[in-house]
């Protein structure tokens, strides 16, 4: 579904991604982890072209996303993206936030879009907060709204960039629960996270990045075993020490 072919990216003089090649099979869930600055957020942001690349190719459903024939906005509407800091639009209510893609990209009227949006809010458990403003809901609720908004156009790919890192601990669970359900549902998922328990449960493959390189790409069983790459084992034990 998604394929990285020798992708490299620089910020000025700093090489952020070094020649990464990997594939994401359709319907699978990939979890990306690694130390700070390893390039994992940057990598997932290249998929919907929020970050440009200097060399290599990225394909989604077989098509090169940087090809002239590809309209970046069409590409992005087919990929759901969830940010660490939710990024809900503060001037719109929860349901208006979720409806925005339907109304402005698909040209639907409020009447047409409302039922779909309400169904999506029910799916994430927030139908009762439809008329609230983002400033009045908790972080966990806001992130679930953000997820609802990202899925409203029924994309085949969902990318999440550290979805729970900005949440208070007691709210992490509700978001992970939703993600677990989505993961099982057939959508292609790429998730950057530090939640290794979550990774263990739902990931089909785990990618470990360090210094801009894809150091280890393995199934969860292998990833958490003794035979894993030494950098991975070092990383996992440092997480355990800090928890």
């Amino acid at each position: 579904m998604i394929a990285f072919h020798s992708v490299s990216k620089r910020y000025g003089a700093l090489q952020v991604i070094h020649d990464i090649s990997a594939t994401v099979e359709k319907g699978t869930t990939i979890v990306l982890c690694g130390p700070s600055g390893s390039g994992k957020s940057t990598l997932v942001r290249t998929v919907n072209r929020l970050e440009p690349i200097q060399s290599g190719r990225i394909t989604v459903a077989g098509r090169d996303i940087h090809a002239k024939s590809v309209d970046v906005n069409t590409l992005r509407s087919g990929i759901g993206f969830v940010f660490q800091h939710f990024n809900l639009f503060p001037h719109l209510t929860v349901v208006d936030n979720v409806m925005l893609p339907l109304r402005r990209l698909r040209g639907q009227s409020r009447k047409q879009a409302l039922p779909t949006a309400m169904l999506m809010l029910e799916r994430v458990g927030l139908a009762d907060r439809a008329q609230s403003l983002p400033a009045d809901i908790s972080g966990g609720q806001a992130q679930r709204v953000a997820i609802a908004r990202s899925l409203i156009l029924k994309p085949e790919i969902l990318i999440l960039d550290e979805p729970t890192s900005a949440l208070d601990p007691e709210m992490v669970g509700e978001v992970l629960k939703l993600l677990r359900e989505l993961s099982g549902g057939g959508i292609t998922l790429m998730c950057v996270t530090h939640e290794m328990g979550f990774a263990r449960e739902v990931a089909d493959r785990i990618w470990f990045l360090k210094g801009g390189r894809l150091t280890f790409d393995a199934s969860p069983d292998l990833f958490f075993s003794q035979e894993a790459h030494p950098d991975v084992r070092g990383f996992l034990s440092s997480i355990h020490r800090n928890h």
Binding site: L50, N73, F83, L100, R104
Partner: peptide
């Protein structure tokens, strides 16, 4: 600036993002 990013990530064009997300704010 993340607001513009989020608006583009949804698939809005630059003008669409300005019209529906940035300018209303």
């Amino acid at each position: 600036p993340a607001q513009m990013e989020a608006a583009r990530a949804i698939g809005l064009t630059y003008l669409g993002a300005m019209k529906w997300v940035i300018l209303p704010q």
